[in-house]
Design a protein around this nucleic acid. Structure first.
Lengths: 348, 348
DNA sequence: CACCGATTTGGCAGCGCTGCCAATCCGGAC
DNA sequence: GTCCGGATTGGCAGCGCTGCCAAATCGGTG
């Protein structure tokens, strides 16, 4: 009645599958319902600018009555800068990346941001593609994993002007914000620890190092650490596939076949080490009496093994959270080294 | 030169932190550069509509020259329906949800969609909040976990008119698309299996069932299965916290303290069962001779234990992928039961 | 009762793109 | 050379919201 003559249009609604959804409710609908201007509604909904208490009540009532859901697509286009952060991770198979995501989404949510994720499968070309794809959403920032990117990715990142945080590695130059720890130093520390405990014939079991650059840095650091202790790798087994419990188990089996006199095994990460541990259990190899085991990441599962796994705990969740907070806060370019912690455990 | 008089504006660019980004390149810039109309550029970029080969080349050249990145925010607002799918999962701590994500993002990427994720921590009120938040991006569809939602969530979902896929459970009525398997039947099958193998004093070790409704359904199914076999639960330990290896290990310890004569333990999932297995290893409890163990999910780690874990394998990745594909294809409301597979293993 | 500064409000021009429609072009048929 | 149908192209009005600015309102003050 009060709108005079709009009835025809209102009746002209789309009626989809369940007779429920209709022409989407817009801010203008709310303004009409509350008998205020559009900008007033906008101000109230964002608690931004000034308006009277009475107006707020009217608007909120209208919102509730109509079941209005703001359209952030429109809001983002009209304002500048979205409340979106893109997150690029290499894999969802290894729990470390969900951990990173968890830290990031927790922090992001607090700041009122949302995350769009993309997975690269450790492929730099795919990384370039997904970065382009994420950039097309005009995110407020991007979280990527590692410091190694192909030139196309680097160019896009730089040219976009979007803030970038590179995570889980500090061994090299970053583009903008860097949050992580030194994988190289972690490898060195592991070698030093094993050498210090008296192990002399140390082998390495790793996964695909050409794709996982951080694992490659640990490997390099580990070799350096051994060398500093006057040792060399007594044998190694590298499998050209992603890390997994299975690869670790099979890898140790294969390595021991070639080098039966090893007294310690360093794994590219905890999943691999767990596989190695299972191999030892299955074959009656005494740990650490006959063979010591050392991992990387400090997963919960390692801590709960009958003998807690010797490993290095990395602050993954914290790295995600820190990066998210820095991006939201518009912090200047910086490097945040979160460090790592060596867990002595009982397997080495 | 050729634009006549625009120079002043062009010079008036923002110059951010590194002197790199500038006034963002828009489709209009590309059109001007390529000397074609805006709609032509739009058509070429989306390979939609007709245009000559010569025009395509001109446009692509201009795009490359300017480093243009389309603005999907604007594109989405102008067209109807985004290429976004919202994914709501309860947790990132348990690998099953990253698995689900993995399946979904893989399928989504093939279809040219992107995923926005949100985590509820198994809290229905948080679910309502994140669903609202995701809906404000006007996604083409939403993937949620489970069939249980509070009334607010249900109302928002229905009122939005957005397609919804509910995952990992088929025990109950769905809102739209349902992809999963019967948790209840899985529980029953587990009980039947244990009873069939001759176990009589069977205990249950579980995590917080009030929040994890699917675990609760397995528990109910398990009890029904026992009853059908003329048995009852010989003891149970339920911990009011999320599932983990630690809770499983501690839970079995506690349960055995109260019910030392159990001959089998059914765990709410594989993580929990792995913890139980570690307890048995640490305390010299023969598996399955003295105590049989049974899990749920069919994680890789269980398959690689010295004795493969008896469990039920669930098609998580496939569920994510199937849901994503159905949503993208605009399939009608349906229930897809992917089933599950009982793995005999060696622990029961 | 007119007047003033502060507070509250509404109007409207974009944000960058897509969809529609009309205009133009092209190659062959007549 | 003219005409025709299809292929190609450009113009422009929105999509729903925000940001800016001007207008209206309010509550004292002199």
């Amino acid at each position: 009645m009060d709108e005079g003559g709009n009835e025809v249009f209102e009746a002209d609604r789309e009626v989809p599958r369940d007779g429920f959804a209709r022409r989407p409710i817009t801010l203008a609908d709310v303004a009409r319902e509350a008998r205020v201007g559009e900008s007033t509604v906008s101000r109230v909904l964002r608690s931004h600018g000034s308006f009277s208490e009475k107006t707020r009540a009217r608007v909120e009532e209208a919102v509730a009555r109509l079941g209005y859901v703001p359209n952030r697509i429109a809001g983002t286009l009209a304002s500048t800068g979205s409340r979106l952060i893109g997150i690029v991770i290499p894999s969802l198979t290894n729990i470390v990346f969900p951990d990173l995501l968890r830290g990031a989404t927790m922090a992001l949510e607090q700041e009122g941001f949302q995350s769009v994720i993309a997975v690269t499968d450790y492929d730099q070309d795919r990384e370039e593609a997904v970065v382009g794809s994420l950039l097309s959403w005009r995110p407020a920032g991007l979280i990527v994993t590692g410091l190694e990117h192909n030139s196309g990715t680097r160019r896009r990142l730089l040219a976009s002007g979007v803030r970038v945080a590179e995570l889980l590695d500090t061994d090299g130059p970053g583009l903008d914000i860097v949050v992580g720890y030194s994988n190289r130093a972690a490898g060195e520390a592991s070698a030093r620890h094993l050498a210090g405990r008296g192990y002399r014939r140390i082998g390495y079991i790793g996964h695909d190092l050409t794709k996982d650059r951080r694992a490659a840095k640990r490997y390099a650091g580990f070799r350096d650490g051994l060398r500093a202790a006057g040792l060399t790798l007594a044998g190694e087994e590298r499998v050209a596939s992603p890390s997994s419990v299975e690869v670790g188990r099979q890898g140790l089996f294969d390595l021991l076949a070639r080098a039966p006199d090893l007294d310690a095994a360093y794994f590219s990460n905890d999943d691999m080490a767990l596989g190695g541990y299972f191999h030892c259990l299955a074959h009656g190899i005494a740990v650490p009496g006959r063979l010591a085991l050392f991992g990387y990441n400090g997963l919960d599962v390692g801590r709960l093994m009958p003998q807690p796994l010797a490993t290095i705990r990395t602050p993954r969740v914290e790295a995600g959270a820190t990066a998210a907070r820095l991006l939201c806060a518009g912090a200047p370019a910086t490097v945040v080294d979160l460090g790592f912690e060596l867990i002595e455990g009982a397997t080495a």
